[in-house]
Design a protein around this nucleic acid. Structure first.
Ligand code: SF4
Ligand code: SF4
Lengths: 153, 153
DNA sequence: GATAAACAGGATAATCATTATCCTGTTTAT
DNA sequence: ATAAACAGGATAATGATTATCCTGTTTATC
């Protein structure tokens, strides 16, 4: 069991996009290369982020991606949700259900616990945003330089 | 991304074993059948639980499995750990590491957050044990009957 | 002792999810 | 019109999980 690699890559992709001057975009291929991901696949990951309204895509020549929300509005959980979807950690396969048909009202004890655990995990992931997490990173000159060299418009 | 099915199955397997009278065992095949798992595969899952000292295996004719700890000492997290191992939810693929070689002392901000999230998840899973979770289940007569019919010794 | 029923554990196959590639279509700056 | 970019469907490669098989060891019973 492992969270998809695309999650970490997405965090950094969004991080790069957060260093972008207004009205500029970064082409998907540049991002993929910088992150070291396969471009054709990472385009699909970028689309997931775009479907979740975290980033915006600009088609056409001089097109690319840019943030749709400000870095302080993008929680790490939003990225997790965009990539992994809901109930990502656990869902019941109803093993006990097969063993003991339980009365409708009775909640399943294990499912309850697992849900509480997942809620707790999610709460932590909601507690930080791209901007709260990467204030330090943004001081990195190399990265900002790379962004400046690769942006379009 | 999904926690292995074997985790939920293990919880119920241990639950069954907790209904066993002292000095008796349940054969692995009986457990597998009741849970609806492939016997050959589930034997390996039972071994993981046994490797983690949650259950004990008795070889030979009239052999089988029984609990090694009391139900109140078996936390749901112990079962999770036995099946999924450590760092099960997330580990960094060092994407940022490639992007910005960071000074040794500086902890990685994303890894830190993910660790805090996992710790929080684990804390919830440590908060309940087999006995705290399944007091209700143990009142189910059908299950106790099944155990009585399938136990050995 | 021989036999049967159970676990141990290695090797291997089947299945399924993730990752990667390819191709056709649409958008837009030049 | 052309080129460079995204959209999205189809499909292949890879890797992890699940399942099977087989050989060996333990132990109760005959
Ligand atoms: S009791 Fe809950 S966790 Fe257990 S099998 Fe049913 S639904 Fe799943
Ligand atoms: S900074 Fe941390 S999370 Fe990011 S790539 Fe490095 S080790 Fe991984």
């Amino acid at each position: 069991m492992q969270i998809k690699n695309g999650f970490e890559q997405s965090v950094y992709a969004i991080c790069l996009l957060s260093m972008l001057p207004a009205k500029s975009v970064l082409p998907g291929e540049a991002i993929s290369n910088q992150i070291g991901a396969s471009p054709t696949y990472f385009q699909k990951i970028l689309r997931k982020l775009s479907d979740s309204d975290l980033i915006a895509s600009v088609p056409g020549k001089k097109g690319g991606f840019k943030l749709k929300k400000s870095p302080s509005e993008i929680r790490i959980y939003d990225i997790f949700l965009a990539i992994e979807g809901q109930q990502a950690l656990y869902y019941s396969n109803n093993v006990l259900g097969e063993m003991v048909p339980k009365k409708d009202k009775e909640a399943c004890v294990l499912s309850d616990l697992m849900e509480r655990a997942e809620t707790s995990w999610i709460t932590v992931l909601k507690s930080e945003t791209i901007s709260s997490l990467f204030t330090e990173l943004h001081k990195e000159k190399e990265l900002q330089d790379w962004v400046n060299q690769n942006l379009v418009q």
